[in-house]
Design a binder for these strands. Structure first.
Lengths: 338, 338
DNA sequence: AACGTTTCCGGTAACGTTTCCGGGATTTTC
DNA sequence: GAAAATCCCGGAAACGTTACCGGAAACGTT
């Protein structure tokens, strides 16, 4: 129905030129106070909204950030909320695309956003991705890009991530303190950075406590409840079975839990369990699951702040690496001491 | 670095006019086959991508859909994935905004998307919203709008939703079949449409089975685990306590479960429990939770399809109402007969 | 009275694209 | 062989905005 008013409409109704209207609206100098007031009054009456498209075309900025995430599970959607929060504050709009952990989809998404003319990218890379040309293309276009959570050493870009190693350390140390002796790890796919870092934390802790590592206690499996279930069954079938398990995600911990219950073992007495991410589900299962908590919302905010900083500065921030610290959250599944 | 090539670059290099280049690229008539081929060859060489901004400005279409949702919990993020799926297919990009169940935020989001010049909206309305002027403004601008899941009778717009009444019916009937006699309902806030419809399904079923309703068995409380917990404690403290509870969300069912366990009652023997939504958590809790399953992904797809249809037709679709059917998913918490 | 400053405003180009229109050159038609 | 049709192409306007430039009018200064 009522087409939105343009600067030209205002100019005509006031019998002045569009340039003057434009200047008035951006309160630039070189315009009489009265005409400016008239312009402002009329623009409010007509409910004038500047056309973002024309503006973007003119000044080659869209004030839009392309966000690419592998999925929108609890952790990532919380991070996205964090990104959204500070982006909005800074006058940016975000476009979120899910790659569904697919390399092809990730390429498609970057291409799409790239020619939708976003001003830059905030990216968490898919687990499937081993080639990074599509991301490098972004940088080659001169657009800023921040990598968060799932970072990749192949990309030289500012990054924000969790100290995953410390997470592994916290979990392992806690289990040792509770008197568990044979601690197994359910890790993710061997090419997933976050998983490996958490594993490293575990290994370092063993070394610190002078416990020699037992490779049979380290299982790699898909980031998935079912695989975790079967992997746990294998662990429990060992002649010298582990008396504690650290899984690098809550999802996997749930799978492990099912297997443990099925075998008639009790937590935390027979076997201790610690997950990672501290998703809400952790306090819904029985027994309630101990987990490594990460400041997801804060992490998202930090990523967006870093992005905006790299928009505004001409310095090279590609070496900036922000690292947030995890926190141990002890619940029933691993507390056997008072 | 390398600024993207424009139509003008191609024209210059080929010593022809921009019009000819444009025509060649859109294989319009009135262009010689050879020049066309030359243009196409060069455009590929330069990796030419048409500037979406200029295009949108010109033809007053952005090929972008604004999606507004109250949050991104499991159900809604699944629906959004569905929307994304068919939107992408049809050449649209989606911009998702969360209102966080806040009326003010919803207004802000619509305004922002509106002047980002989206082509239309797909909306699920926040629970807080009682005034709909911001949505009517969309329609007044002549933009198509589809409402999904959380619909509102105040809005005359095409809609896609679940048959919530049937959900309530399925749950209640199932509990009756399992021999439960006194069935309580944990409903959401009294102004939430979906909640009331599910409640209606319950009431209709009672009537069908000639059971007189007992108002003390119907509790309204916030859409929230904690409130559900306390409400359940109240229910269980009644002199004639219910022997089954139907909650209108899984989140609330979890709260109820905690209360039930705390009171030393067992499911399904002492008390039956059925949730709604069939979130993954339903099969993670002990006992596993029976729930009403809804085709969220399909619902999202249907909403997007309806949107695209209303983009392409000039007919008035505002009376179109697509209703998807729920499915009962029986698990441990309510199965006491073989 | 002449000149420099300030104040205020309009015209125009530009961002990258499509579309309409007109016209020269070539071909067809009788 | 002239009129008519066809084939190609370029120019220009338009979408809505900003930015640069130039200039008219008013003012102040000697």
């Amino acid at each position: 129905m009522s087409k939105p008013a343009t600067i030209k409409d205002i100019a005509q109704r006031l019998n002045i030129s569009v340039s003057t209207v434009s200047r008035s609206l951006r309160n630039a100098p070189d315009v009489n106070i009265e005409t400016r007031q008239a312009v402002i009054a009329l623009s409010e009456e007509l409910n004038y909204q500047p056309n973002k498209l024309a503006l973007s075309l003119r000044q080659k900025q869209t004030h839009t950030i392309g966000v690419i995430v592998p999925n929108l599970d609890y952790v990532l959607s919380t991070m996205v909320r964090g990104i959204d929060e500070v982006a909005l504050e800074a006058g940016y709009t975000v476009m979120v695309c899910q790659s569904n952990e697919s390399y092809g989809r990730e390429i498609l998404n970057t291409a799409r956003l790239l020619d939708s003319l976003v001003d830059g990218f905030i990216v968490s890379v898919s687990s499937e991705t081993k080639i990074f040309d599509h991301f490098k293309k972004i940088q080659h276009r001169g657009l800023p890009m921040v990598v968060f959570d799932r970072i990749a050493p192949q990309l030289t870009a500012p990054s924000v991530r969790l100290d995953n190693e410390e997470g592994g350390l916290l979990a392992t140390e806690h289990l040792l303190e509770q008197g568990y002796k044979r601690i197994a790890v359910l890790a993710g796919p061997a090419n997933l950075g976050v998983s490996n870092s958490r594993l490293d934390g575990y290994l370092k802790t063993l070394k610190k406590y002078k416990i020699k590592k037992d490779d049979s206690l380290i299982m790699h499996c898909d980031f998935n409840q079912d695989y975790a279930y079967y992997a746990t069954l294998e662990l429990l079938a060992m002649k010298k079975r582990p008396d504690a398990i650290f899984t690098i995600s809550d999802r996997m911990a749930i799978g492990a839990m099912l297997a443990i219950k099925e075998k008639g073992l009790r937590m935390p007495s027979d076997i201790g369990l610690v997950g990672f991410n501290n998703e809400p589900v952790a306090s819904l299962v029985t027994p309630m699951l101990s987990s490594i908590d990460m400041p997801s919302f804060e992490l998202g905010k930090a990523a967006a702040r870093l992005f905006i900083e790299s928009m505004n500065t001409s310095e090279d921030l590609s070496q900036v690496e922000e690292i947030l610290r995890p926190k141990l959250c002890i619940r029933e599944s691993s507390r056997r001491l008072a």
